[in-house]
């Protein structure tokens, strides 16, 4: 029997765990639509809250009953050693970029994107501030990727998976404006990632990969 | 030669790494005051920024030149397997509570405490909301600690170290109001932690342990 991941459709936080499972071969059943799971109802039930006291998703339940909340912990648990970082230094660097994604990317990216989705009041000043923060953060990523294809070591790790997933909404919602201060390295990095077969397993990433290839194409043109 | 941790004095984020090093025996030199390190100047130097592009502290530099930023990554690197969680499930649970501290404790704790430090403007509604959030979070911790002394397994882990350090500001700044909706389990848990010798290595915690013993005493009285 496979383990279950409770979430709602298109949840970028759940993608981290889904991609990790793709790489590691962990068997995972996604419960994201009724009747298996209805976000807003099922996660308020006493049974769910007894296992996941915060009522947040994604939430993981193994076939042995082992329960886990917080998306980074679930993705880490479903990863293999290659994704987690196979040396103490590599695994610490993976955690560094996972923390970076949560603490440096998500807050400004959400402040920029939420108004475009109509789920938050638009405020010009706050959006301009968020854009500047995103620009600063992409510059750090771009500098790091100047001489590297992957964030840690010579192959995909949970660091890359987490950072790309945390940028998903930016790519989908504000791709054009992202482009104007986009950095070639970032697009290359994201492009090479999202074209990997594990990533394309999700329709979401096929959209993403299309847009990033477009983005890459544009950047090549602009650079040319 | 020992590795160096760059920070400013009384930085609770650096305490996580310092306590981890205490437990694991990793040798760590703290650079937090002039001339070794001056926060606001040294972390803006080109040398520092080339190693730590965000310019944030704590920042770790090994005697082998290995550099790490993001406090959770540094604490994880300086830990031993017992602190990190010695099984895949335990290590995932450690990461779960580390994420919990960052995403559930720090935001409302900062919103409540910053105005008391004069760091931010006081806003009654925001403070009341933050108090409710802290109350909700402590209730989750309290429920989990109903049947446990430690957050993961039967001994101290990085989960405990991270959660106690993330509560430090609250203990120090709003101890009294915390008491009124404090939970006996939380105080016991924090009390047992901060009385451990590794924790008392820092003067900060000796203050904390005194106040928590006081808190524990008060709670016993109130329960009596």
């Amino acid at each position: 029997m496979a383990a279950t991941l409770y979430t709602y459709p298109e949840n970028w936080r759940a993608f981290k765990a889904q991609i990790a499972a793709q790489y590691s071969g962990a068997r995972l059943k996604i419960a994201s639509t009724s009747p298996a799971f209805t976000f807003g109802q099922s996660n308020r039930s006493p049974v769910f809250l007894s296992n996941f006291p915060l009522g947040k998703v994604p939430a993981y339940q193994g076939d042995d009953g082992f329960c886990l909340f917080e998306s980074n912990a679930i993705a880490h648990y479903l990863s293999n050693d290659a994704l987690r970082g196979s040396t103490p230094q590599a695994s610490a660097q993976v955690l560094q970029w996972v923390s970076f994604a949560d603490s440096e990317i998500i807050p400004p990216a959400s402040a920029w994107v939420f108004p475009t989705l109509g789920i938050m009041q638009f405020n010009k000043q706050a959006t301009e501030q968020a854009k500047e923060e995103v620009k600063r953060v992409l510059a750090v990523l771009n500098q790091h990727l100047n001489t590297r294809t992957f964030l840690v070591g010579e192959r995909v790790s949970l660091a890359d998976v987490t950072v790309v997933c945390s940028l998903l909404w930016l790519y989908k919602q504000v791709k054009k404006s992202l482009f104007y201060f986009f950095y070639p390295n970032r697009a290359r990095f994201a492009g090479c990632h999202v074209n990997l077969k594990q990533f394309l397993a999700f329709n979401n990433f096929s959209i993403l990969s299309e847009s990033i290839s477009v983005l890459l194409f544009k950047i090549v043109i602009s650079l040319a | 030669m020992a590795a160096t941790l760059y920070t400013y004095p009384e930085n609770w984020r650096a305490f996580k790494a310092q306590i981890a090093a205490q437990y694991s025996g990793a040798r760590l030199k703290i650079a937090s005051t002039s001339p070794a390190f001056t926060f606001g100047q040294s972390n803006r130097s080109p040398v520092f920024l080339s190693n730590f592009p965000l310019g944030k502290v704590p920042a770790y530099q090994g005697d082998d030149g290995f550099c790490l930023f993001e406090s959770n990554a540094i604490a994880h690197y300086l830990s031993n397997d017992a602190l990190r969680g010695s099984t895949p499930q335990a290590s995932a649970q450690v990461l779960q509570w580390v994420s919990f501290a960052d995403s559930e404790i720090i935001p409302p704790a900062s919103a409540w405490v910053f105005p008391t430090l004069g760091i931010m403007q006081f806003n009654k509604q925001a403070t009341e909301q933050a108090k409710e959030e802290v109350k909700r979070v402590l209730a989750v911790l309290n429920q989990h600690l109903n049947t446990r002394t430690f957050l993961v397994g039967e001994r101290v882990s990085l989960a405990d170290v991270t959660v106690v350090c993330s509560l430090l500001w609250l203990y120090k700044q709003v101890k009294k109001s915390l008491f009124y909706f404090f939970y006996p389990n939380r105080a016991r848990f924090a009390g047992c932690h901060v009385n451990l010798k590794q924790f008392l290595a820092f003067n900060n915690f000796s203050i904390l342990s005194e106040s928590i013993s006081v808190l524990l005493f008060k709670i016993v009285i109130s329960l009596a």
């Binding site: 807050p107 959400s110 939420f114 989705l117 | 900062s110 004069g118 760091i119």
Partner: peptide
């Protein structure tokens, strides 16, 4: 997805808090 996303707890103000904390400790450290 947007509706669900709206229920996520995001610390939108984190950059503002980071900046305030940085200034506070820079002042503290002279």
């Amino acid at each position: 997805a947007a509706e669900c996303l709206a229920q996520e707890r995001i610390w939108f103000d984190k950059p503002r808090y980071d900046e305030a904390e940085r200034q506070f400790y820079e002042r503290m450290n002279g």
